[in-house]
Design a protein around this nucleic acid. Sequence first.
DNA 1: ATATAGATCTCGTCA
DNA 2: TGACGAGGTCTATAT
Lengths: 269, 269
Amino acid sequence: MNYSLWFQRQKKNTQTPAAISIADFKPFIKEIQNALSSNKTITIFCNCSVLYSGRAESELEEGDRLIIIKSDNTLLVHQPEGNTPINYMKTGSAIDIVDLGHGLLLKCQNQKLKETLEIFIDDIYGIHSYKLDDGKKLQLVGNERDMSDMLKDNPKMVAKDFVPLSREEHTKFGFIDVFGHDGKGNLVIVECKRYSAGLSAVQQLRRYVEKIIELKGVDKSKVRGIIAAPDIAKNAEEMLQKWGFSFVKVDPPKRHEKAKKMQKQLGDF
Amino acid sequence: MNYSLWFQRQKKNTQTPAAISIADFKPFIKEIQNALSSNKTITIFCNCSVLYSGRAESELEEGDRLIIIKSDNTLLVHQPEGNTPINYMKTGSAIDIVDLGHGLLLKCQNQKLKETLEIFIDDIYGIHSYKLDDGKKLQLVGNERDMSDMLKDNPKMVAKDFVPLSREEHTKFGFIDVFGHDGKGNLVIVECKRYSAGLSAVQQLRRYVEKIIELKGVDKSKVRGIIAAPDIAKNAEEMLQKWGFSFVKVDPPKRHEKAKKMQKQLGDF
DNA sequence: ATATAGATCTCGTCA
DNA sequence: TGACGAGGTCTATAT
């Protein structure tokens, strides 16, 4: 049975706090407990303050927020602006609601992660819940994996004489995006970045190159390191040159490219 | 005026799709447009499918979700499980709602970022909106900055003879967590990590050390690199030793430590 | 469980 | 505006 409840209330009148009686919150408690026990997704528009203790400790003063509780007991506190939740608790937390008389305390505890979140709810503007049914997964095109795929399928984008051997493999040399050799007996290591490559990208490449020199026992001059990215930062380029690596401008693939690739494959028949 | 609307409907009966008429969605459109124009925070419990195109491209098949639209036109699509939104659009997006007859199309476009999100809403279980008022910011204790603070105030946690000079400063040597020297005329660079240090942490330290050797023109033996973290990965420790750096076990500070520090400071008087 | 690296990362900060 | 690093990062994957 899908039961739901909706209260529309005026914001608490600070001039007459006595108007908010214990009885006001009773149905909310019931609704939240009901929704929690039936694994519904719950939204609470409210005025609240928040305390967090766990990996760090945080405090958030009183303000209007949207609280979301999911069927896996994930809890999110969202402010009216911004992408990311201001506070949150991960899946598997134990959630409890306590009547404080002057408001509600939403307690959220994750035993495993040793984290606690306490939400002091001063006023509730609305509670809504619904049992959501969804098992679908996102199909995404244009991540780094697709980029290394593209380079393996189109080695000329890296270098004229590049011969790819493996892609995105956890070798003993490390996690190398595209690995191969060129016509002159050099090993080639390609590090892809979907966005402008920075210092850390160059260092990542450097680490792989050094490891392969060490493990294969080959000479430094026999290993080519290449960054493939749409752009590279000035400092990163300097470091790249200093280490004898090179940069190839490559834009990350999206559906457009994917479609072209499929057309090409179809054309092979 | 705070106006709000609440519809409780059964899930669409797939056997009789004709039962869902255009008229059913009319009040929803009005409510969404109304809420958008007054910068309310909106929640929509619905069944929908989603297309994204921008930095990457993604597709999400039909399922039950919670859509959140904030007062800054941030848009989030949440599945009933998991911490992070399955789809999202950043602040400043233009949001438009279109009646498709057989459902609604929620279009979200960010001109600046060249991103588009299209949500095809097949069925709506509930729409709620409220104007939220909140300008408070999170007070957080126990981040890396606090950790470098702690080390600067308690240099013996790093080494007996450590003399800190600066903390978290953008020097010409780079962004170094704690910088100083020891009694033997060596420069000391400390890199803090709140969690187990990995290969990238060691490389970050290595980069700072190399830069300071280059810019100061000092000998490699005169610069000490130290990782301060609660733990270090095995591979990272190997690399650390190979480069002559050292590891110091330090737990990140939280309120408990902060309080102790304040007591200590008070005790100084 | 730990380790490694990507992410439509996001967010802040400083040049 | 770009660059750089932290994040209560989160998430997926491999060992």
